[in-house]
Write a protein that binds this DNA or RNA. Structure first.
Lengths: 224, 224
DNA sequence: CGCATAGTTCGTCCCTCATCGAAGCATTCT
DNA sequence: AGAATGCTTCGATGAGGGACGAACTATGCG
């Protein structure tokens, strides 16, 4: 009854699971397209579009049009801070569902995140690539190291093409709470993993299952 | 899809107007009963009770039973911080509905807040009482000053009785963004205002309308 | 100029959840 | 004990809003 800033309006925008997932995905700081966010949120494109309109209207998002792509991003640090604050409470208040999570062990190990690999394997891979200076990580940004070109060429991945999407991108992995590798390079690596049949995708799930020899091959190439 | 803390769950708890109002009311830091919160939120007691259960289950509130009264309060500073963060975004993002607010000018001037006076008049009154050292304000806490007893006795209010409820309490006034006086003293003052017919309550509204002579009398006693 | 891709709008279905009145507990006061 | 509060639970009602498929618009590519 007391009139103040309409906090319920803002909170209810975040209070929908699909929208919450989108906002979470945008917490990485990189702009994402509607399709990417639809996948991230696990809803169809029209549904995602509708949610994005609402978030835009609510002032939580900004939109940057680049050619035929439209990149959505968080409206500012204040919004990001709010998400963090809510996340903090959610963590503090509901440890029940976070920890055990044996709901799908395979998902924690490796899964598809849009077009690249996520999960423990993916986080370990990025760590190792950075350790070997093949990739350079600088806070949130990831760049190619001097040896990247030759290293990836050796396994048939060309990192010197200049596509519209960035080659490297950090993507926050919520199951491990660390970053994994996204961008065209992340996508190319996932392609290779599936092409070489090192792993297969679980039907109707994002889980990625490595075969025993496939796992060895993957570790030899990326974790050695 | 990515599993993390369930931020949507928390946000949707805050995303209902009734619950948001309750949380806002509890931002004062004082425990409030279900009935008080029902009034604050503008819903019936059963509805309020249902909302309170959900907030409790969600871990956002704590409950302190004292005799037959049950005082609800925010679960902790983290929760308060979250509300503040959301409020900040709501303010930044929607100045449209905050400023002009001529929807009910009378409400801004003076209105009932549960059992005491709120609005510009109430805020001015508290300021003046503190200025004259009749009341002592210490951050959020308000105490009686040395001359309080005689000052209020002169207008027929006994502040020396020791009821269960605190005599003085600060209550955040959202229209002015400052505190006004609640507690039994606040209630007694409102009683006097209505009893002396300095003002009348608008029917079916929380607005309090002072008559011209009533306003003079009020100012003479409390704002001089 | 078509074709393809990215995105929005429309229409419809359906489910959740907020709301309230009435009745049921529980606690305290007389 | 009986009465009176303060609060919760139950049951029924209704509306808001999230979901998707299909059709439409817009931008870029050959």
């Amino acid at each position: 009854m007391r009139e103040g800033p309409d906090i319920a309006r803002i909170a209810s925008l975040v209070g929908d699971p699909a929208r919450a997932n989108m906002l979470n995905a945008l917490m990485g700081g990189t702009g994402l397209t509607a399709s990417e966010l639809a996948l991230e949120a696990g809803v169809s494109l029209p549904t995602a579009s509708s949610h994005l309109s609402k978030l835009m209207e609510g002032g939580l998002l900004t939109l940057a049009s680049q050619g035929r792509h439209r990149y959505y991003g968080l409206a500012g640090p204040q919004v990001a801070g709010m998400i963090e604050a809510i996340t903090g409470v959610a963590e503090a208040v509901g440890p029940k569902r976070v920890r055990p999570g044996p709901r799908d062990g395979a998902m924690r190990v490796a899964r598809v995140c849009y077009d690249h690999l996520a999960g423990e394997q993916a986080v370990a891979m990025l760590d190792r690539l950075v350790e070997k200076d093949i990739l350079l990580r600088d806070d949130r940004e990831i760049r190619l190291g001097p040896s990247a070109s030759s290293h990836f060429a050796a396994i048939g991945i060309d990192v010197d093409a200049k596509p519209r999407r960035p080659v490297c991108r950090a993507c926050l992995d919520w199951s491990v709470r660390r970053s994994h590798l996204a961008g065209t390079l992340g996508a190319a690596i996932l392609d290779k993993i599936l092409l070489e049949k090192w792993a297969r995708r679980e039907k109707d799930s994002r889980a990625v299952i490595f075969s025993p020899p496939g796992k060895q091959a993957f570790e030899k190439v990326f974790l050695s």
